[in-house]
């Protein structure tokens, strides 16, 4: 089934079976391997991407449902090759990861939070990432990373990215 998606600002057309999830489409059809499969039943959050500016689980959405929608994956956050976003850099600064598997979903969730809340409390940060399971870090350095990113963005008066209407995370 022909489906037109906008992925990281680029219009693409894919021809997929209706049963293919957006997650599998991104990975297998569009070669965007940064979005990860963790549980494929909507609990772990490793597959989190932005759809029309809101964080959603790409394993709980069919690729054909993405027709005409604007999708942003982890590959769409780095400003340039070899250059990190404020959030990505903050994760490196505090070592807010270990194995790196849940990290893309975590960073998408963090961007979603910071796009509408530039001074989140720790409680709000924890709430925003509560749907993303990490087995390595115990979340401590992830919370630090998002706190640090928020602080840096406030100082530079920028936002995680311009999004409309997205609920936190």
């Amino acid at each position: 089934m022909k489906t037109e998606l906008t992925v990281n600002g680029r219009a693409v057309t894919v021809d997929v079976e209706p049963r293919m999830t957006l997650l599998d489409c991104l990975r297998d059809e569009l070669d965007l391997k940064g979005t990860h499969a963790g549980c494929e039943h909507g609990v772990c959050g490793a597959c989190t991407v932005m759809v029309d500016g809101r964080a959603v689980r790409s394993c709980l959405m069919l690729a054909v449902q993405g027709d005409g929608l604007d999708i942003r994956t982890i590959e769409g956050f780095a400003p340039d090759a070899g250059e990190l976003s404020v959030v990505q850099d903050a994760f490196c600064e505090t070592h807010g990861l270990q194995c790196g598997y849940c990290t893309p979903g975590m960073i998408v969730a963090a961007h979603a939070l910071l796009s509408h809340n530039d001074e989140p409390s720790d409680e709000e940060i924890r709430d925003a990432i509560s749907g993303n399971i990490c087995r390595c870090t115990g979340y401590g350095q992830i919370v630090e990373a998002i706190r640090l990113a928020a602080e840096r963005m406030r100082q530079s008066n920028t936002r995680a990215f311009e999004a409309e209407g997205g609920e936190s995370a």
Partner: peptide
């Protein structure tokens, strides 16, 4: 800093899948 982190935050880890 932990040098491995850069590739992972960019979604550029190289996992088996």
């Amino acid at each position: 800093r932990v040098r491995e982190d850069r590739r992972f935050v960019a979604g550029k880890g190289r996992f088996v899948a």
